[in-house]
Design a binder for these strands. Structure first.
Lengths: 97, 97
DNA sequence: TCCACCTGTCAGAGAAAACCTACACGTGCA
DNA sequence: TGCACGTGTAGGTTTTCTCTGACAGGTGGA
């Protein structure tokens, strides 16, 4: 799993928070998601990659009903609690990166 | 209080996490803190300002024993839990900014 | 064949964050 | 008076992040 600061940086973005919220409605393929959140696919890929590396979402390939290949993304289960103690506890692993 | 994405961005930094951890030992004045975390005061001010705006720390002026004016910073109490639901709930306030 | 979908990536521009150096100024003490 | 220590900020550089536009390629259906 990524370091805490990296995970927090991945989620600390209004655009990526918007993506998370959109995925709460169920798994969605990239092009459809790009339309819903109103951004280019190229940009969305960048955001999706960061969210996936941080463990908030995960993607897989699948075939649609009419036989087209789709890249589906869905939410992972996650819960992070931030307190002074949890931050201090995470510091050692930060320096390993 | 700042928007969630702004608060998370403020804490999503190894340097600022380090500052938080250092302040767990008690309130500290700026120059001393700069020595401990090994950065210039100018840079530390930038980090402290972000942490304060996000509500993680707060500062106040005080006089040292030998009569010098010191700017002391100390930790605020905080606890943030991040889940898909908390992110979705925070979206409306994001757009107000 | 052409069109409408889809995936995936790259180069480069623009904006934002992080960082350093240097300055101005104040206080206590030898 | 000079030194050591403190606060606070302005300027400019470097680095990172964000974003656009364009490309190459695949599939199904009219």
């Amino acid at each position: 799993m990524a370091a805490l600061s990296q995970r927090l940086a991945a989620i600390a973005s209004p655009q990526r928070m918007r993506i998370i919220a959109e995925l709460m409605t169920g798994e969605t393929h990239v092009s459809e998601l790009a339309r819903r959140v109103g951004m280019s696919r190229a940009l969305l890929y960048m955001h999706l990659t960061k969210l996936q590396e941080a463990g908030f979402i995960h993607g897989h390939l699948a075939l649609s009903e009419d036989g087209k290949a789709l890249k589906l993304f869905e939410l992972s289960d996650f819960s992070i609690t931030i307190t002074p103690a949890s931050i201090a506890a995470a510091l050692p692993e930060e320096n390993e990166q």
